[in-house]
Write a protein that binds this DNA or RNA. Sequence first.
DNA 1: TTGTAAGCGTTATCAT
DNA 2: ATGATAACGCTTACAA
Lengths: 327, 327
Amino acid sequence: MSENKQPTIYDVSERAGVSLATVSRVVNNNGKVKEETKRKVLKAIKELNYRPNAMAKGLASSKTTMVGMMVPDLTDLYFAELAQGIDAVAKIYDYSVSLSVSDNNPTAGKEAFETLMSQHVDGIVYIGNKTSQEMFDLLKSSPVPVVFAGSVAQDGKLPSVNIDYVQAFQQAGDILKQHLSDTQIALVDNPGESGLSALRQQGFLKAVSKGKIYESEDDYRSGYNLAHHLLEDGIKGVIVGEDEPAIGILNYMLDNHVKVPADFQIISSNDTKLVKMTRPAISSVTQPEFDIGAVSMRLLTKLMSGDPVDDPTVILPHEFVLKDTTL
Amino acid sequence: MSENKQPTIYDVSERAGVSLATVSRVVNNNGKVKEETKRKVLKAIKELNYRPNAMAKGLASSKTTMVGMMVPDLTDLYFAELAQGIDAVAKIYDYSVSLSVSDNNPTAGKEAFETLMSQHVDGIVYIGNKTSQEMFDLLKSSPVPVVFAGSVAQDGKLPSVNIDYVQAFQQAGDILKQHLSDTQIALVDNPGESGLSALRQQGFLKAVSKGKIYESEDDYRSGYNLAHHLLEDGIKGVIVGEDEPAIGILNYMLDNHVKVPADFQIISSNDTKLVKMTRPAISSVTQPEFDIGAVSMRLLTKLMSGDPVDDPTVILPHEFVLKDTTL
DNA sequence: TTGTAAGCGTTATCAT
DNA sequence: ATGATAACGCTTACAA
């Protein structure tokens, strides 16, 4: 931990024998600079190991090249995979990312947002389920662009990146209907989830008009605890909105000697790496989480630089992988 | 996205009829300010919805109240859980966190570090396996404090937070030795992992002096692919350094009708939520990931404010949960 | 207790 | 093509 303070642009200009302005020009690669001067400056920069001070730059230019990433829970693999995509593209465009775990807590969310505002981030990628109306209003009031990654704003017209949940859940319903009747099929979802659960429900009901709908949280335990109700109600196949509760349901069945998929079928939909790790492996909607994150961040870069954007709500393709929890 | 620019400290001082300095004093709660003046200022702040500009503040005070968090991969649940702990404590101490996914790539790691330096973070929490010597040197040269969370520096004496891996792996070895002989027991680990794998190995060999050691990556597939070698070599029980390869091994056994735990035992050691989700559930070292992250961040706050720190290398307690992959 | 004013390290506008 | 110099919004001696 050496203590010599960082060299400034002033040191560079002195060493290179040019003015501050010129150094700034070569650092930011704008304005005309003679090749030779440029070389001198670059040399001085290298020798001093000069790094521009991001704060000073931000203050002077009112651009921070920093984006905020709001995420409810990093230990939810779906979110983690989105985050990786976001981070990867942020790196490409030289944005740093300020992380804020909002914990699905409205207060924490509000504070996180405030922090991002005082940091003067140039934009925000918002990942969220259970987004409160208050939070939406806050986000809508943002002076910088906001993109919803893997979630939609309630009014459905803020920039966002998702798969076509209506279609996906209709297809999932159709798959279960091949062997089951409507009343034997259920949807298990977390209704708190932004506008997404409404879309899922809509798709589900398109295929399974008399299908029943159960609520669960996003975690393993909720699924496990819900499972016996499903059995009591004569449900023989479920579509689950999140992977962890899907695994909870699966394990309950296994622990209670219910044969999967013979007597109980499961389709999950977040397609995290979890679904490959269970036995039987879980049949699932396949979605490009990484890409959803990546495209969200790319969209944000466009928004931030005022580039034209054809459609701010982008839909990415999904597929199905039918493994061993469906017939 | 309204466009009225943010109010500054100047607007507040004007509205409250006091000087900049006074506003600054009440905002930072230092220096003496008369109760009445304070009230006036607070009122103005509220009315204008004033938020201090973090960059200006950072520039002027050369403190950013921002820490860097370097992590190789967010989709590794062990890291994600550490990150949650770090974030939680950062919030408590009002630090924002600048995220950098280093991807186990030395170049990316170096760039991430550079970015944090130009952001002038006040400190860094480093999470990493496979840390290159170059990266260590870089971290050691940091002008701000660095804490290793869930990993140790090669020379073992930089600030870090971990469990006692030597003891844990010795205990794990002892557990398997209850039903198996030395030559039937193996350690599966990723030797690239900072200094940790050396410690694990050391503990393992203490209990199982003639035990064999296999290398694997940190992912599911590596474990799955390694499994048949274990069988061919007559191994009947393994201790695995990471959960995902442990599950890979487990699933290979299941897929090939090897009875677990009767004919093959497994103990894993990262204790992510994954180990509860398999069937049979995996026996595992139990470690307080969240706390490791939390304590790391807390340690960093002390280091950053120059508080005395008794021992910079802290060891947190671990336990064992023997579920269904051990006899 | 409160105010004045000099930085902090850049960018950006004018000149030259 | 290059250089001065005034911002940017805040903190912090130093004065008052």
